[in-house]
Simulated scan of single mutants.
Amino acid sequence: MKDKFEKLSNVGKNAKEFVEKSKGTLVKTVDQNNDGKFDIKDVSVIAGNVKDIVQKNAQTIKETVDTKVSEMELKVLQPVFLETFNSQDFFVPKFIKISGRDKRYAENDSCKKSIGYLSNPKGIRLLNIFRDSVEASELSFYPDYGGEFYYMDPSDSKKYIVLEEYFNYLKQVRINELQMVAQDLGAKHFRVTYMEENRSFLGKKATKGVDLHKVINTELNQSSIEKKYVTAEIAAEMEFLGHAPKMPKLQYMKYDPSINGLIEMRMKEYPLVHQKFMLKLSNTSGLKESEALRIDATLKSMKVGSNMTILKEAQNESKRYLEYEIDF
């Protein structure tokens, strides 16, 4: 019994010491002003610390939310900044719109330094450049940047032509280039004639009592397409004294097989005296009918009023030719 009593006494003593130590540890833990006791002042300090933690967490949450909102805005607005525009990884679209700085970009802190933005109306990639940032882009625009819609020059990715003048402009610069080719090759005479193609079907006429559908289905394969060219104008003609040829520097006709063949024969001093061939304008225009269709759809979706359709112009371009005649 004595042993049991001593063991119980030791347990009680140990428990008391544990409580005293725990009490001291607790006091040290909650004693915020280091005065050796836990009182109302310590409660105030703890409350202040909790407030600071809550405020810091709230600030962190706000910053995180602001960052997410900003990222979402950038994805929606798709601003283009000068450093992005000038990077090698940025692909400048062929189709450009020039307009005033939109309110969404002027008043948004994330977009204030942008020079424009990207959009994708009707499946065509469009670069919208703010008029106050055109010079910073270092792109050139013909005749100036006072217009609205422009398309890339097929021979110069830094140059854009106002949409209304696109095909007329390219017609003239290609005529000028053909003149330069004649001069460099030492021609004595050259003429460029602008022509348009008029197509008509030649086939047998359907007779009375014959199934018209059957006639069409059988005769179309036998019919031929007659091509007639209407001379619109002599676009350029000149005579020279003639001289030894030098290699022309081509820009718009760089990949035309007829022009390259002419240059090759002349530079190799073949006995070339006279050459005449037709150059189809749509082969070097750079704006195909499929692209013109998307542009028209885009302009319509933007409710842009215009008397011309780009598709119609592209279709007409496929019927236009330059007849090139040169004498040495």
Rank of each mutant, 00 (worst) to 15 (best):
M265G: 13
A314K: 06
I96T: 08
S99G: 11
V27S: 04
S87G: 01
M267G: 09
S119W: 00
M278T: 04
L139K: 03
F5V: 13
R199H: 08
M278S: 10
L185C: 12
K171N: 12
E107H: 06
Q275W: 03
D296Y: 12
K97I: 11
Q179T: 08
M265P: 06
S318T: 14
R294E: 13
N14H: 03
N57S: 10
T231F: 01
N108F: 04
E313R: 10
M247T: 15
V162I: 09
R294N: 09
H189Y: 14
S306W: 00
T218D: 15
T64G: 05
A182Q: 03
R320M: 12
E17Y: 10
L82Q: 08
N120S: 13
A58K: 15
K122Y: 01
L250F: 07
F85G: 03
P271S: 13
K13L: 05
S155E: 09
I263Y: 07
P257Y: 08
S44L: 12
N217F: 02
K208H: 10
R174A: 02
M253E: 13
T193S: 15
K158E: 09
D256W: 04
T309H: 06
S119F: 02
L293N: 11
K158L: 07
L299Y: 02
F90S: 09
A206W: 02
G24E: 10
K28H: 07
E17G: 07
E196V: 13
P121K: 04
S282H: 11
K300S: 14
Q172E: 15
E135M: 07
Y160H: 03
I98K: 03
E17W: 02
E197V: 03
K319D: 02
K37F: 07
Q251L: 06
G186H: 07
Q222M: 06
L220C: 01
F90N: 06
A182T: 04
Y321A: 03
E325T: 14
F149R: 05
